[in-house]
Design a protein around this nucleic acid. Structure first.
Length: 329
DNA sequence: AAAGCTCGCAACCGCTTTTAT
DNA sequence: AATAAAAGCGGTTGCGAGCTT
């Protein structure tokens, strides 16, 4: 279709914002809200295009933005989520309270990416260069495939989350229209639900169900992700199920699959962040990787434990999103 | 001291997706 | 359903600050 750029008009200012411009924009939004960004500049007395105003507001002036140095925790979160989601900055930003996608993107490009490269790790795949030596064993290939599946799975989950958020809003509105009296908040109700269930017509206690996966938690159970098809060794994107299990529940067939979550970035985060204890661990692992012996030398259980910890940390991050629409699979 | 270089980040660009009419 | 506007998003650029030679 095509559309003419919003900043075509002559006389509109570009480039860095002055404190006066910031003040004008802030004052206007505080008093009127932003309303239509297109008409805002004129009404606020700014020689800027609406898009420029919107970006300035969302990336800089908004009061709920945290600025300044990233904490170790934030760095860890970014690295782990990037391993899972890639360059999906807005998705990553939803898991870092008060940070904008632009800031995270800049921080990744100027700091974290370089650190990875310096250490011989591909910032795109999060694989150590030694990892390529393992590829002939097939272990690395299946790890990559699994990682890819995980990313697809997370993509699907994020899309579903967005859809659910919309549905929840609608349900919430309908609910209030039907019952003006105080009632349970369904937006939060399904968020708190362990199972992700679908709106059930005719059932007052509406639930939302994931088309692709479920997850359950209990205090004494490990979070596990496994293919729902019984005989699958490698999960199919459409057959993911996330279930809970005690360690003793782990069967050989489960091990086969869990082994394939051999995340190449295991230990990477702490390594990058300078954790000496983890560094030594990771060094050992890398040495083993060089010998092409990781999968062969480790017991299945410890293998499972290592990977479980890595993925649990990522999944916990994903699961503990600050946004209202999150926290369920 | 100054020229050149590097780095970090704010802002822009252009494309896609969502929303409103 | 079609269209346009608005918003979202990720890649890229430009500029100022700090560092090096």
């Amino acid at each position: 279709m095509g559309r003419s750029p919003c900043c075509d008009k002559a006389g509109l200012k570009k480039g860095p914002w002055t404190p006066e411009e910031d003040q004008k924009l802030l004052a206007y939004i505080e008093e009127h809200g932003h309303g239509s960004w297109r008409s805002l500049p004129e009404e606020a007395g700014l020689q800027r295009c609406g898009k420029s105003c919107r970006l300035r507001w969302t990336n800089y002036l908004r009061p709920d933005i945290k600025r300044g140095k990233f904490t170790v925790q934030e760095e860890q979160t970014i690295i782990q989520l990037h391993a899972l989601l890639g360059n999906r900055w807005s998705a990553i930003a939803t898991h870092l309270a008060k940070r904008t996608d632009n800031e995270i993107k800049n921080y990744w490009n100027t700091h974290l990416k370089k650190r990875l490269v310096k250490m011989g790790i591909d910032p795109v795949t999060h694989k150590h260069k030694n990892e390529t030596l393992m590829s002939s064993t097939g272990q690395s290939k299946s790890a990559a495939a699994t990682l890819s599946h995980m990313a697809q799975w997370e993509s699907a989950r994020l899309e579903a989350e967005a859809r659910l958020a919309r549905e929840s809003k609608l349900l919430h509105l309908q609910h209030y229209q039907n019952k003006k009296a105080a009632a349970p908040n369904h937006c939060l109700a399904h968020k708190a639900s362990a199972n992700w269930t679908k709106p059930n017509k005719g059932n007052g206690d509406q639930q939302l169900e994931s088309p692709t996966s479920t997850v359950t938690f209990s205090e004494n159970h490990h979070l596990m992700i496994m293919p729902s098809g019984e005989n699958n060794n490698v999960p199919n994107m459409n057959e993911f199920a996330v279930t809970s299990s005690t360690s003793s529940d782990v069967k050989d067939s489960d091990h086969d699959w869990m082994r394939q979550i051999n995340c190449p970035t295991e230990g990477l985060t702490s390594l990058l962040l300078g954790d000496s204890a983890d560094r030594s661990l990771s060094t050992v692992k890398n040495d083993e990787a060089e010998a092409g012996a990781v999968a062969v030398n480790e017991s299945e259980y410890s293998y499972y434990e290592d990977n479980k910890n890595y993925w649990n940390s990522i999944l916990n991050l994903v699961d503990s999103s600050p946004s209202d629409s999150s926290t369920m699979f």
